[in-house]
Amino acid sequence: MTEKHRITVTVNGRAHRAEVEPRTLLVDFLRDELGLKGTHIGCEHGVCGTCTVLLDGRSIRSCITFAVQADQAQIRTVEGLASGPDLHPLQDEFWNKQGLQCGYCTPGMLMRACEILEQNPDPTPEQVREGIASNLCRCTGYQFITEAVVAAAGRMRDEQPWDPTRPTAATTVSEERP
């Protein structure tokens, strides 16, 4: 049996220590070890973007990233977006605009949208399209996703100032796994 490696990964504000095989993919670690099933597996070769998470603030494909590569990193996944009963403005606008149909690409799309808005809080629809071109959606044709991201950007700028780096109540607890 291959030797396991000890890693510490902080996911949505919670630190997790674990021992993993070097070949364990980050997406499998998140889903199977941490039980965070919101990050989905689509193509398994880094094209579709369904498995997108933010690693130290930048979107990555967790299906072609090893868990050991995330050692000491800060990971954000879809589970970190909502705060209790309150949806994140992006989630709320995806709901309002019907920016999803089957919902399978949605977590990856939301995390990529987070990154886009962190880099540019006031994108044009064209900029949103170019930004989300990293992620495939087979259902919607992207039109309502684009509308949702633009609408959420407006809310996040004007109505609900939201600091993505500020831990929310749901993510401040530090939990270490044995």
């Binding site: 099933k37 996944t77 977006l81 989630q91 999803l100 919902g103 399978y104 939301l110």
Partner: peptide
């Protein structure tokens, strides 16, 4: 009426309950 879909909250939260989940 174009109401918000009743299915969506669980999908938006990553709690869709797909087969792999």
């Amino acid at each position: 009426k174009s109401i918000r879909r009743v299915e969506d909250p669980k999908f938006l939260r990553g709690r869709g309950g797909y087969i792999a989940d």
